[in-house]
Design a protein around this nucleic acid. Structure first.
Length: 428
DNA sequence: TCTGGGGTCCTAGGACCC
DNA sequence: TCTGGGGTCCTAGGACCC
């Protein structure tokens, strides 16, 4: 008898792989994709990893490798990655009725009622089809819980013998434990740097060590999450598949500036811009927000420069999702916390107290549906145009025209899949 | 010159209630 | 000398994830 199985499918070096689809000359070369503002490496090709480039390595510390080792650095192109992700997830979803999209490059599948299937072969077929149809290399991990599927995916990536698909459920107990004994505990989903240190104090070093601990005892020391992790390592599924994404409880939009900003006017532009982005997401999930926080900060990495960071929470008289209402509120907050004489590096807004748009309570003075109708229609229209013609193509004047504070993206590739002007040109 | 952005869950402690 | 017990809500902070 075989129980429900879980698979984790994960794009290898996803952002780099997306870029390589449209620029095959990048194959075999060390490539990194940089974070916003070209700040640090957030994706690395295997060749870049081999050069010793760590996840999150600041670009200014590794840029010398461009000269010496031919390292290629690209600005992150989230429009492209998001669209490639959507295509990849749709295809992966064909392989099971139950799918959870966990992140931009990771997806869980649940296999219930697949007792007579060879899931390893199923995984191989998935892998080949995604490579052929989407152009992205993926690895597949299979096991009786999400935590084990995650771990299996790690083996699928790191151990060539698995040929990209590791199914822990077809190995015998001794083989599985041998793998776990050869893996540091920090590789487990949910065990980060701090917990790894803490566990080391109890001489728990490998995944097998953790698996063999009594779950209830470790709960007392480490909390309920650790108990679940141990159970999951023992094949007892504690985390269900979440096929419907839960609506967000808060929506944040914040970014560092491309250069230091000192003028209140420019901060207002940036905050207006971020509010518009956040409000679009808010409407996208059909929510309204009851409160809004705006924050600004200087650059803590410049020692000796006067530092200031502050935030202001303001509550809306009535929950709203209208960009205009939220922008006015945010600017009130910003004016409270703005202090001249500082070089600001970053600003952001956070929409809080989100509730479903249908559950909005009329206020004491009888605000009605009709009062909102016009602004709702306007917001819908703006959202549609921005989806069609690109983010920010239509925006409020308060978000500014020149936007000189915008982030730097010096090595940005084209949006190959979402923009006619970005189409790749093939030479005969 | 140059160090990302966007989330979640859990726990502990205080205020407050009956 | 005695000074309950149980519950909720809120917040801050810590830990994790990609």
């Amino acid at each position: 008898m075989m129980t429900t199985q879980y698979a984790l499918i994960d794009g290898n070096n996803f952002y780099v792989s997306c870029e390589r689809v449209f620029n095959p000359a990048l194959e075999g070369k060390p490539v990194v994709v940089l974070s916003n503002n070209d700040g640090c490496a957030v994706a690395r090709s295997n060749e870049a990893k081999a050069l010793g480039i760590a996840m999150g390595a600041p670009w200014f510390k590794i840029r010398h490798l461009a000269q010496s080792h031919g390292l290629v650095a690209l600005s992150s192109n989230y429009t492209l990655y998001g669209d490639m992700s959507r295509r990849m997830m749709t295809l992966i979803g064909q392989y099971s009725p139950d799918q959870e999209i966990y992140s931009i490059d990771e997806s869980f599948l649940r296999f219930s009622g697949f007792e007579h299937w060879d899931l390893t072969a199923h995984g191989q077929q998935l892998r080949e089809q995604v490579k052929q149809w989407i152009g992205i290399p993926v690895c597949v991990g299979l096991g009786p819980s999400k935590t084990l599927a995650k771990l299996a995916n790690h083996y699928a990536k790191k151990r060539p013998a698995f040929n990209g698909v590791c199914n822990l459920s077809v190995l015998n107990a001794r083989q599985v434990d041998a793998l776990l004994a050869d893996t540091p505990v920090g590789e487990v989903w949910g065990v980060g740097r701090r917990l790894t240190e803490h566990l080391a104090g109890y001489n728990i070093q490998t995944v097998l060590d953790l698996k063999q601990e009594p779950a209830a005892t470790l709960r007392a020391r480490f909390g309920v999450v650790m108990e679940r992790t141990i159970r999951e390592l023992n094949g007892i599924a504690c985390y269900p598949l979440e096929s419907e994404p839960a609506p967000k409880q808060q929506i944040v939009s914040s970014k560092s500036f491309g250069r230091p900003v000192t003028e209140q006017r420019e901060l207002e532009e940036a905050v207006s811009d971020y509010v518009a982005r956040a409000a679009e997401k808010l409407r996208g999930q059909g929510s309204v927000c009851g409160a809004l926080q705006v924050f600004i900060e200087t650059n803590p990495f410049i020692p000796g420069e006067p530092q200031y960071h502050n935030g202001a929470v303001t509550r809306l008289a009535q929950p709203a999702s209208d960009t205009g209402a939220l922008t006015r509120q945010a600017l009130v907050g910003l004016r409270k916390i703005y202090r001249p004489g500082y070089r600001y590096k970053k600003a952001g807004v956070m929409l809080m107290d989100l509730i479903d748009g249908d559950q909005i309570q009329a206020d004491l003075y009888g605000d009605t549906y009709n009062d909102h109708y016009a602004t709702d229609r306007l917001n819908d229209l703006v959202d549609q145009l921005n989806r069609r013609y690109g983010q920010g193509c239509l925006r409020r004047a308060s978000a500014g025209f020149t936007q000189g504070w915008r982030m730097r993206r010096e090595n940005l590739t084209a949006t190959f899949t979402t923009d006619w002007n970005g189409l790749v040109c093939a030479h005969a």
